[in-house]
Amino acid sequence: MEDEFPKKRNVRPTEKSNLPIVTLLVLVLLVLAMLYVGYEYISDSSSNSEELTSVVVDSTLDEQSVGEPITDEPAEALETTPAEKTAEPAKEKPKEAEKETTPAISASSVGGEQITHTVKSGESFSTIASRYNLKTETLKGLNSSSPELKSDVTKLKIQVQAVHTVGPGDVLRVVAGKYGITKEALMKANGRTRDFSERGEKLIIPFPSKK
C-alpha cells in the first residue's frame, strides 16, 4: 500500500555560481588591455614618422650647406663682395666749415672818388650799399678786411661818383641834374630829409647805376 502522502522527489539544489561574472570581467579586462596596446602602438608609429620627417628635412639642409664655404668672418662680411669692398670710399675726416671769403676789389676798378663812412647803429652792408647805390658784393670787396660791422667803430671805404662843393644857385635839383642822377638819390646818399643845401657844403654824388 502506497503511502498516503507520496514522498517528495529529490529536488536539485540550486547552486549560485559566480563564474559568468568572473568571465565577463576577464573579457572586459582583455578588451581594455588590447585597446591600451593598440594606442601605444599608434602613438609610437606617429612619433617615429615625425622623427623620420625631421631627419629628411635636416638632410636637405645639410645638402644645401655643403657648397657654402666655412669661414670665421661674420655674415655681413660674407655678403659684401670684393668689388663692393673696393668701391667703398675711404672714410674721410670731417672737413672744417670753409669760411666765406669775399674777393677784394680795388678802388680803381670801381672808379670815382673814395670817401669814408662810419657805421652807425642798425646799419648793415646791404643798407649802406643801397645808400650809395653800390652792390653789396662791391662794398664787401672794398672792405674785405672788415668782415664785421661795429657801430661808431668800423669805418668803411666807399666809392662814389664825385664830391661836389655847393656854389651859388646849387640847389639839390640842379646838382643832381649835373651828374645825371635823381634828386631823391642825392638826398639819400647825403642822409637828407629836406630839399636844402648851404653854400660851401660838400655833397656826395652816388653813381647813376649800381657798381
Rank of each mutant, 00 (worst) to 15 (best):
E184C: 03
T116V: 08
E100D: 10
T193V: 07
T86E: 14
P168A: 13
R173E: 07
V57P: 03
M187N: 07
M34A: 14
N143G: 04
I21Y: 12
G191S: 08
V26P: 02
L25C: 06
K16A: 05
H117P: 07
K91F: 10
V153N: 01
Q64E: 13
L25Y: 04
E88W: 05
V175K: 14
G177F: 02
A97G: 10
A87G: 14
A185C: 01
Q114S: 09
Q161F: 04
L186R: 00
E73R: 08
G200Y: 11
S130D: 06
A83Y: 08
K211I: 15
S146N: 02
R12Y: 02
K95R: 12
A90M: 08
A107T: 15
S54Y: 05
S124W: 07
S145P: 00
M187L: 05
T136P: 00
T80I: 14
G169V: 00
R192G: 01
T127C: 06
P206W: 02
V31Y: 05
E73L: 12
E76F: 06
A77T: 01
N143Q: 06
I105T: 11
A83Q: 12
E63A: 14
E15W: 10
E79F: 06
L52F: 10
S151I: 01
K85D: 06
G67W: 03
L134F: 02
T154W: 11
S47R: 14
V55F: 15
L134Q: 02
S54G: 09
T102R: 03
L134T: 15
L25H: 07
P147K: 02
P103L: 10
D195N: 15
I70V: 11
